[in-house]
């Protein structure tokens, strides 16, 4: 049961292959992260889902059908490049988009007011966009995406350019939409948000999918590290690939340990205990999404060139 799926989707612009044989699917109620550096093909993929551009090859199913603007009434979209009609009033803008998505004027306006209320912008409802601060305009644009209570919410780099307060508000809205049962697909190159929010995620490198799955599965790709403090010398023990000394306190030494591929933190603790190695603390750390990304893509998410 997926609300969105891609099968073998490829998009070429001339010689550039922006998206290469991509398969993916998203279920209702799921928060799905599209991760990748600049030029990885995130925007291109999202635009194909919205039928703003057409794939060169492959099949896309949105809400069980081919993509198209006739699904607009069930979709919310926040593009990467933000912008609104500067002379239009905030509430009129939201109402306009609501109506483009098939709502009647009164419902769209009421829903728009409710959103502005929630975003603490109710008293600016009749201000023209041009008179608003950038942060306010961003909230209005988010409202245009949410006004029709979409079943599929698509956000392209939604966190970029937001101040911390608005980032929090956006995270709350994403969670809220998912609780309601909507599928949320967002792209980002900032891993912290994805780590906090995503039920499942997909990592793209130059149009090619490197990973799709939940966070635990991603963490499984990179062995965890262990931090421990011991008296013994841990340098040459079986099951330990490398041990870095972080500091000393009397005869205690603090280590950061990389496990060998077949090992895991539990086994290590068991071995050490059985061998009578005295430990003052033991802490297993899962790889951060950032590290997983670097591991899979081979470069920093911000720095990847097209």
């Amino acid at each position: 049961m997926s609300i969105l799926s891609m099968q073998g989707v490829t998009k070429r612009f001339g010689d550039i292959t922006a998206v290469d044989r991509l398969d993916m699917h998203v279920a209702p109620g799921e928060i799905f992260g599209f991760l990748g550096g600049n030029g990885a093909g995130k925007t291109t993929s999202l635009r194909m889902i919205l039928d703003i551009i057409r794939p060169t090859e492959g099949r896309i199913a949105v809400l069980g059908e081919a993509p198209g603007q006739e699904h607009a009434d069930r979709i919310g979209f926040l593009p990467e490049e933000r912008g609104l009609y500067p002379s239009m009033k905030a509430i009129d803008t939201i109402t306009y988009f609501g109506r483009l998505k098939g709502m009647d004027a009164a419902t769209a306006r009421a829903e728009g007011m409710a959103l502005l209320e929630r975003f603490d912008l109710a008293e600016r409802a009749t201000s023209p966009i041009a008179d608003m601060s950038k942060g306010m305009a961003q909230k209005v644009q988010l409202a245009t995406a949410l006004v029709n209570r979409p079943d599929l919410l698509i956000l392209d780099e939604p966190f970029s350019g937001l101040d911390p307060v608005n980032q929090q508000l956006l995270e709350a809205e994403i969670v809220r939409a998912a609780r309601r049962g909507a599928a949320v697909v967002f792209s980002t190159h900032i891993m912290q948000h994805a780590e906090r929010l995503c039920d499942r995620l997909l990592i793209l490198r130059r149009g090619v999918k490197k990973f799709e799955g939940d966070l635990a599965a991603a963490q499984g790709l990179v062995p965890p590290t262990v931090r421990l403090t011991a008296r013994a010398d841990l340098a040459a023990r079986p099951g330990i690939a490398a041990a870095r000394i972080l500091g000393r306190d009397g005869d205690w030494t603090r280590y950061e340990v990389d496990l060998s591929p077949d090992n895991d933190p539990g086994t290590l603790l068991e071995t050490l205990t059985r061998e009578g190695v005295l430990l003052r603390d033991f802490e297993a750390r899962h790889a951060a999404l950032h590290d997983i990304f670097v591991h899979l893509v081979g470069s920093e998410p911000q720095g990847e060139a097209a």
């Binding site: 635009r47 919205l50 703003i52 603007q69 607009a72 979709i75 979209f77 926040l78 593009p79 490049e81 933000r82 912008g83 609104l84 009609y85 500067p86 988009f97 483009l100 998505k101 644009q141 245009t144 995406a145």
Partner: peptide, 17 residues
Amino acid sequence: VEERGSKLVESVIACVR
């Protein structure tokens, strides 16, 4: 020109052909 310049056209054509 303004519509394209202010980048809002993408939001619109997500709803309208």
